[in-house]
């Protein structure tokens, strides 16, 4: 290991830590979650209303409870989306790559969408 190898790795890790802190600091309590399938927005649910929603014709089940959203069921083999756990902060996202499905938390500025759905 030479000096410049340490510097390079140090810079990468430092950059990642700075990005991580920026992400954490800018996160706020979310107001709603947006469900996208295949890149197209299909539904918006308020985080303040508890409920169970079947997504994508039954491939995934979304549960909203006490301000947290999580996927409770999935038909994919690895169930990574279920293991990703609960989300509630703006920008947090649950991804189900096999079904090309994402659940993303948005803040209060997306409230108008809430009213329509």
């Amino acid at each position: 290991m030479k000096k410049k190898d340490f510097i390079l790795i140090g810079v990468i890790v430092a950059l990642a830590l700075v990005l991580l802190i920026c992400v954490k600091l800018t996160q706020k309590e979310g107001a709603c979650v947006v469900v996208k399938i295949d890149g197209i927005e299909v539904a918006t649910y308020s985080l303040n209303v508890n409920g169970t929603y079947t997504l994508n014709g039954g491939t995934n089940v979304l549960i909203i409870k006490d301000g947290f959203a999580y996927l409770s069921e999935a038909n994919c083999p690895d169930h990574l989306c279920v293991k990703q756990g609960k989300i509630s902060k703006t920008g947090q996202v649950i991804t189900c790559l096999p079904n090309k499905l994402t659940v993303t938390v948005y803040g209060a500025e997306k409230n108008d969408v809430d009213l329509i759905s």
Binding site: A16, V93, T102, T104
Partner: peptide
């Protein structure tokens, strides 16, 4: 993943992945 799901928020995973990847 971003291209497939058109969910830009996926990049929020990146910092943690960068640390574990290093």
């Amino acid at each position: 993943a971003w291209a497939v799901t058109s969910t830009a928020q996926i990049v929020y995973y990146l910092p943690v992945l960068l640390i574990s990847g290093s």
